[in-house]
Design a protein around this nucleic acid. Structure first.
Lengths: 203, 203
DNA sequence: CAGTTGATTAACCAAACGGTTAAACCATAC
DNA sequence: GTATGGTTTAACCGTTTGGTTAATCAACTG
């Protein structure tokens, strides 16, 4: 059941996606979703029983997409430099498509941290991180990078790529960037953030 | 009228602070605030006329505190290395006291970007950033740091300090850190994030 | 064409919500 | 003591909200 099909169910899912991501669970109204989908409100409950059920579906999907872009790169082969370059590039490109996703995810998670724990356990997240940590220590031992705490490096990697999307309006305000200027700032960042990380790792 | 006084008004402000920051504007209930303050709901409207007015007050205050910790360091004297060290240290220390503030601020801003624009204009934020940019270019010309885009550096500075608080549950899940372990991670970060930035700026 | 079945709607419902009102409370001043 | 004026409350109000119901519609089926 891909969202691409123009079934009523798919139209509802797309509408729910837009409204939930834009307004958050608490701010979202079932009526708004119905309007956005161009259908009667009762039909929402016909296809998905409740607001909670519908939200859980959307959140699961968005969270999955977000995590997958991390897995794709981190779980692949290649040197650290390689992974950093590819992960920054991929994440920023993907987030540019839907810039509000991270804030949506982080806000909902903060209201219900269990949402993330289960998902990360399913995906064996600590195993993925353990492998990353081993690679960091290994490359440090071989003198390819300077020794750093893998936890801190992992946090840095995520921070540099994701944070600008979370703090977009504030950064725009600070640096007086209009929409195209901010888009350019993000485009530049694909290379600049990776450069910054790699420079910081020089032995 | 400091919040420290045990007047009814102060108790309401403190309760509103807790509830708004925890649940967000949409998720917060006036009844919850009244309960938290141990008073009747009607008293809320007696002291502050509406939910919006009360929220505006709380948000303004939290936003002000958040921005002040940036101003304190960035607006002071000293080399870039100095500022980086002090800003990372100060921000992380301050955010550790109330770790949910950034997420609260960013979420509310995303719903109403005007909230930040006005405030930043009042505080002459672009002037502050312009001075920062000048210093970055200047120190680069004198060979103290390698040349970097001031916008990107500013974003990096904020990212590395603030993001871990926004993404706390996710980072905890990835690295399997319980509460004390995460506290230690944050404590380490005061030095590690600054080191990372300074290493990345080596010519 | 009558009958069946799933899709869709208008109308409705109870609970929760932000906000109001009128009365009670309580310290102070006369 | 009682009049005064700010403080606090119980009860209430209109609206919005997520959710339900019963009826209608449309497409097959025999």
């Amino acid at each position: 059941m891909p969202d691409t099909a123009d079934t009523t169910e798919a139209r509802i899912r797309q509408a729910a996606q837009r409204v939930f991501v834009r307004d958050g669970f608490d701010g979202a109204r079932m009526q708004d979703i119905a309007d956005e989908a161009g259908i009667n409100k009762a039909l929402l409950h016909y296809y998905f029983r409740s607001k909670d059920k519908l939200f859980a579906l959307i959140f699961e999907e968005k969270m999955g997409q977000f995590l997958d872009s991390i897995w794709t790169v981190l779980g692949s082969d290649g040197s650290l430099h390689d992974k950093i370059r590819r992960m920054v590039e991929l994440d920023i490109t993907q987030l540019s498509q839907e810039p509000v996703i991270p804030l949506f995810i982080f806000h909902e998670i903060s209201q219900n941290p269990e949402l993330v724990r289960q998902k990360l356990r399913d995906k064996n997240a600590d195993g993925l991180f353990a492998a990353f940590a081993r690679q960091v220590d290994d490359e440090a031992r071989r003198g390819l990078i300077r020794p750093v705490d893998p936890q801190q490096l992992f946090a840095n990697l995520l921070s540099l790529t994701v944070f600008p999307f979370v703090a977009k309006p504030m950064l725009q305000g600070f640096m007086t960037l209009n929409e195209p200027a901010f888009a350019q700032f993000i485009e530049d960042r694909k290379q600049q953030a990776a450069d910054f990380l790699i420079h910081a790792l020089r032995p």
